[in-house]
Amino acid sequence: MINVLEHYGALRAARKLLTPLLRPLMGVPGTVGLALIGSLQSTDVGAGMTKGLADSDELTDKEKNT
Rank of each mutant, 00 (worst) to 15 (best):
M26C: 11
I2E: 07
T60S: 15
A14I: 12
V28R: 06
D55T: 07
G33S: 12
G38S: 13
N3I: 11
L59P: 00
K62S: 10
D44H: 08
L34R: 01
R12P: 00
G30A: 07
K64D: 01
A10M: 12
L34D: 01
V32P: 00
T19M: 03
L22A: 00
A35T: 04
L53N: 08
A14N: 01
A47G: 08
L5K: 03
P29E: 04
A13I: 11
L53V: 07
E6G: 11
L59A: 03
E63F: 05
L25S: 15
A13Y: 07
L59T: 05
K51Y: 03
D55C: 05
L5F: 14
S42H: 09
D61G: 02
R23A: 15
A13T: 12
P29C: 05
L18S: 02
Y8K: 09
L34V: 15
T60N: 07
I37S: 07
E6A: 06
L21R: 14
D61P: 04
G27M: 05
L21G: 02
M49L: 15
M49S: 01
T66Q: 10
T31S: 11
G48Q: 15
Q41D: 11
K16F: 02
R12L: 03
L21K: 12
V4E: 10
V32N: 02
T66G: 11
L17N: 09
L34P: 02
K51E: 13
V4T: 14
V32W: 01
M49R: 03
L34Y: 05
G33F: 07
L40A: 10
E63M: 06
R15Y: 12
M26D: 08
L53T: 09
H7T: 11
L34S: 01
A10K: 09
L11D: 05
G30L: 01
L36F: 12
R23M: 14
T50F: 12
L17Q: 12
T66E: 09
D44E: 15
E58R: 08
A54K: 13
M1D: 12
V28H: 02
A35W: 03
G33D: 10
E58F: 05
G27E: 04
K51R: 13
T50H: 05
L59I: 03
P24F: 09
P29T: 00
G38Y: 09
G33W: 11
T66N: 10
N3H: 10
I2T: 01
D55Y: 00
R12T: 10
N3Q: 12
R12M: 03
G46A: 05
A13Q: 08
L34E: 10
V45Q: 10
T19C: 06
R12A: 15
V28Y: 01
L34I: 15
T31P: 04
G46L: 00
L36K: 04
H7E: 15
S56E: 14
K16G: 02
Y8I: 14
Q41P: 01
T66Y: 02
N65T: 11
S39R: 14
V45P: 02
G48A: 12
P29V: 05
A14T: 10
K64M: 09
L18A: 06
E58C: 06
L17H: 12
